[in-house]
Design a protein around this nucleic acid. Structure first.
Length: 305
DNA sequence: CTAATTTGACCTAT
DNA sequence: ATAGGTCAAATTAG
């Protein structure tokens, strides 16, 4: 029973999310009131306006982004008729097979305003790069079933394909989200940091944005160390606003593979890396603003059934 | 010590 | 049988 999501709806959803993020950052910037931030503020304002504009266009049937409906996901969640799922205390159904999916291809990273926790990595036969699996950090906290997959197409290394599965109950349920957010950040999922990416590593010190809520249920609430890194200007041509969902995914351990290293959250990649690493959920705001809508941004709806 | 990530194993769907 | 997705123990980092 999958709710069919229209391309326009997906687009609007994404745009609205971005709009919110932009607004949050903008608000933070306004509070800071640093001269260097003016540039960022302007861009953020432009971004917000653009989001709204696009959203409206999409709502009116004129989606500004390429929307394509895919029906490739034929795999359906077989009902536990009894035999198959008779005794599986552990493994559970794939979250991706029971809900709508939205694929987004972006050049940098896809920030959706949510905190993700990596729970797996898998090498795909047709792809040179591994696919990373993330789940909402609030999964166990408030039962958010949302998950997402990040993968780099072998043909375009500068592109990241992020597929979202499930709906964010943590988002819809403001209460839960609010409660979780209030713990650290009131309403803002972001923390403003004025430091270039290079200093990012230091940010790594902080615990990643994810909270361990794995099946173990070790931790409950994420530290929410989302941060917006404002480059000092060293490499910032204008004003590079890097919004890091997580200060940095620590993890210096060796990735399974080179590709994984690039994709997986590595300490060096955080804000410091020129092209932020999607897995860490850290993106360069400036890139985002520049190409947020220029880059291929396709919202594809998978109809589970 | 606590928490997050990594990685191999397990399980489901095609 | 194969590929893909998720779990969970082990490892690493703060």
């Amino acid at each position: 029973m999958a709710a069919l999501v229209t391309p326009a709806a997906s687009v609007v959803s994404e745009l609205v999310v971005r709009g919110r993020e932009s607004a949050a950052v903008l608000e933070a910037l306004l509070q800071g009131g640093s001269p260097q931030e003016h540039g960022g503020i302007r861009e953020l304002a432009a971004e917000i306006l653009l989001c709204c504009d696009r959203a409206l266009a999409a709502l009116h049937g004129r989606d500004g982004v390429h929307a394509v409906a895919l029906a490739s996901r034929k795999r359906r969640s077989s009902e536990p008729d009894g035999a198959a799922s008779q005794t599986r205390p552990k493994r559970r159904m794939r979250a991706s097979s029971g809900s709508t999916a939205m694929r987004v291809e972006k050049r940098s990273t896809a920030e959706d305003g949510h905190i993700w926790r990596k729970y797996g990595q898998k090498e795909i036969t047709h792809s040179k790069h591994p696919r990373l699996y993330f789940r909402c950090s609030y999964k166990h906290d408030i039962g958010c079933p949302a998950t997402r997959q990040v993968q780099q197409p072998d043909d375009d290394l500068s592109l990241y394909v992020i597929t979202y599965f499930g709906d964010h109950t943590c988002c819809h349920g403001d209460e839960a989200v609010a409660a979780a957010e209030e713990k650290d950040v009131k309403m803002q999922p972001f923390v403003i940091n004025f430091g270039i990416g290079s200093a990012t590593e230091s940010s790594t010190s902080g615990s990643p944005w994810q909270n361990s809520d794995d099946g173990d249920g070790r931790s409950e609430i994420p530290r929410s160390s989302h941060a917006v890194c404002l480059p000092e200007g060293g490499e910032a041509d204008e004003l590079r606003l890097k919004v890091t969902k997580v200060e940095t995914t620590s993890l210096g351990s060796q990735p399974a593979s080179p590709a994984a290293a690039e994709l997986s959250s590595s300490p060096d990649v955080s804000c410091a890396s020129p092209a932020w690493d999607p897995l860490s959920s850290c993106w360069e705001w400036d890139q985002f603003v520049e190409s947020s809508f220029d880059f291929v941004s396709r919202f594809i709806d998978f109809d589970d059934f």
